[in-house]
Simulated assay, not measured.
Amino acid sequence: MRSKPVRLVMYHILAAGGALLMLYPVLWLVMSSFKPSTMIFSTAESLIPSPWIWENYVQGWKGIGGYTFSTFISNSLIIVVLSTIGVVLSSALIAFGFARLQFWGKSFWFIIMLVTLMLPHDVVLVPQYILFAKLGWLNSFLPIIIPNFFGAPFFIFLMVQFIRTLPHELDEAATIDGCGKFRLFYRIILPLIAPALATSAIFSFYWRWEDLIGPVLYLNKPEMYPVSMALKMFLDNDTLSNWGAMFAMSVVTLIPVIAVFFAFQKYIVEGISTSGLK
């Protein structure tokens, strides 16, 4: 009993040390956003800026190429919101089919879906590019948004596991009351899998917000760039890179991510833990 307080103190010390180790890069990023670009990578400089340079945020928000950073944030929001809505709804519908409906080759197609989950994304980049080029979708948001309306293997698997935990008696009661398959889906199943939907939406938000490969491949106009490409524009191999402005806008782009995490943290834990109970 006497050793319990000692173990508790040691646990908190180790946990605090681990948290500090994980948060140090973010802290360094925030502090560097208030330093001149010439002093950011100087080993003689301390972590705390002296003096504090707020001009980095002003310069960063002015943007590049005549477009303010608000334009890039708006583009990212368009891509993220539409992609998230599409991937969550389509994945939920597909997961409902695998978990509740009986059809020929159900196990086979479920395995095929899992195989696509294990397939490296880089393998399909060239075929997708050729397909979208023939469709005339290049230099638009369509190649980045439309594929999300056909589901995502990770989210489908997550929701299938969640739906399988729901009692089948709910389906039988709804069918007796006259519900068809689609009405059963959106009136009974969809409200009950809200934690899985929220978890999928949050992960989709993160992945789409930080995506760089898609915009690099399909977007050529600066006015259509999302924040991931806008940050890259602050770096120039021929002239002096504006590291201060880039770090300042990196901090700005972290605000939505952090806000979404803290607002929906309980849904992430609940959605993943409940899906794994089966």
Results as ranks from 00 to 15, higher is better:
residue 40 I to V: 11
residue 82 L to N: 05
residue 149 F to Q: 00
residue 2 R to S: 14
residue 103 F to C: 08
residue 209 W to A: 08
residue 107 S to M: 05
residue 63 G to Y: 08
residue 78 I to C: 09
residue 70 S to P: 01
residue 132 F to T: 01
residue 151 G to T: 01
residue 221 K to L: 13
residue 119 L to Y: 05
residue 150 F to G: 01
residue 38 T to F: 09
residue 117 L to V: 06
residue 5 P to D: 10
residue 111 I to Y: 15
residue 149 F to G: 00
residue 124 V to K: 09
residue 96 F to A: 04
residue 246 M to L: 12
residue 158 L to S: 06
residue 116 T to L: 09
residue 125 L to D: 06
residue 1 M to T: 14
residue 156 I to Y: 01
residue 95 A to W: 00
residue 214 G to N: 09
residue 23 L to V: 04
residue 136 G to Q: 07
residue 30 V to P: 12
residue 262 F to N: 13
residue 205 F to L: 10
residue 135 L to Q: 04
residue 40 I to P: 05
residue 224 M to G: 08
residue 92 A to C: 02
residue 17 G to S: 06
residue 89 L to T: 02
residue 208 R to N: 03
residue 242 N to S: 12
residue 62 K to L: 15
residue 190 L to P: 00
residue 59 Q to C: 04
residue 175 T to G: 02
residue 50 S to I: 09
residue 195 P to F: 04
residue 99 A to T: 04
residue 239 T to A: 14
residue 260 V to E: 09
residue 200 S to Y: 04
residue 8 L to G: 05
residue 17 G to T: 07
residue 205 F to H: 04
residue 164 R to D: 07
residue 206 Y to S: 01
residue 119 L to Q: 08
residue 2 R to V: 15
residue 269 V to E: 06
residue 229 M to W: 07
residue 44 A to L: 09
residue 29 L to V: 12
residue 39 M to Q: 12
residue 270 E to A: 07
residue 133 A to N: 13
residue 271 G to I: 00
residue 170 L to G: 03
residue 218 Y to K: 13
residue 177 D to I: 08
residue 236 D to Q: 11
residue 243 W to R: 09
residue 169 E to C: 02
residue 178 G to T: 04
residue 181 K to G: 03
residue 183 R to E: 14
residue 125 L to N: 07
residue 255 I to T: 13
residue 253 T to E: 14
residue 174 A to F: 06
residue 94 I to M: 09
residue 8 L to W: 11
residue 170 L to K: 03
residue 83 S to H: 01
residue 30 V to G: 12
residue 266 K to N: 04
residue 267 Y to S: 08
residue 25 P to H: 05
residue 27 L to W: 11
residue 176 I to L: 12
residue 147 P to N: 01
residue 22 M to C: 06
